[in-house]
Simulated assay, not measured.
Amino acid sequence: MTEQLPSGSKVLVTGATGFTGSVLVRKLVEQNLKVVAIARLTSNLAPFKGMPIQWLQGDVFDPELIDKATEGVNYIFHMVTPFRDPKLKDEGYRQVHVISTQLLAKAALKQPDFKRFVHVSTIGVHSHIEHPPADENYRMKPGDIYQETKMEGELWIREFAKKEGLSLAVVRPAGIYGPGDKRLLKIFQMVSRRWVPVVGDGSNLYHFIHVDDLTDFFLVAAMHPQAEQEVFICGSPGDMTFKRMVDLIGECYQVDPKLIQIPATPLFAIGDLCEFICKPLGIQPPIYRRRIAFYTKDRSFNTTKMRNMLGFKTAHSDEAGLQETAQWYVDRGWVSLKKS
Rank of each mutant, 00 (worst) to 15 (best):
L104C: 01
L104H: 00
Q102I: 14
R26E: 10
G18N: 04
V120G: 05
V125Q: 03
G15N: 07
P82T: 05
K115A: 04
G21E: 01
V13Q: 10
S22N: 02
S9E: 09
V73T: 00
A105R: 01
W55N: 08
T17M: 09
I38P: 13
I76D: 00
R84Q: 11
G92W: 11
N32K: 13
V36Q: 09
F117K: 00
Q57E: 15
H119K: 00
N74R: 06
F77Y: 15
K89V: 13
K27H: 11
G58L: 06
V98Y: 11
S121E: 03
T101S: 02
T101K: 01
A46H: 11
I66H: 02
Q102K: 15
L45V: 10
L41C: 10
D59Y: 06
I76W: 01
V11T: 00
T70D: 12
V36R: 15
D85V: 08
Y75M: 09
P6K: 07
P86D: 13
V36H: 14
P47H: 11
D59Q: 12
N32H: 14
D59V: 05
S7Y: 07
V36E: 05
L28I: 05
P52I: 01
K49T: 14
L109F: 09
V25F: 09
I99E: 14
L56S: 03
I123V: 13
I99P: 04
Q31M: 14
D113F: 13
I99C: 08
G18H: 03
Q31W: 09
V11I: 05
V13Y: 12
T122Y: 06
V80T: 15
K110W: 03
S121H: 02
V120M: 08
G15Q: 02
S9N: 09
Q57A: 15
R40F: 09
K106G: 03
P112D: 12
M79K: 06
L103P: 04
A105T: 07
P63K: 00
S43G: 10
P86I: 09
L56G: 10
G50D: 03
G50Y: 02
G58E: 11
L109Y: 08
P86R: 13
S121W: 05
P82H: 04
V13R: 07
P82I: 00
Q102W: 11
F117P: 00
L65N: 14
H97E: 07
V73L: 06
Y75R: 00
I99A: 10
V25T: 03
L24C: 10
A16K: 03
F19G: 12
G21L: 05
L12P: 01
I76V: 15
A39P: 11
S22P: 06
K87C: 08
T17L: 08
T81K: 08
I123L: 09
S22I: 10
D67G: 13
I66T: 02
P63R: 00
K10S: 05
G58D: 11
G50E: 13
D59W: 06
P82M: 05
V36I: 10
V13C: 12
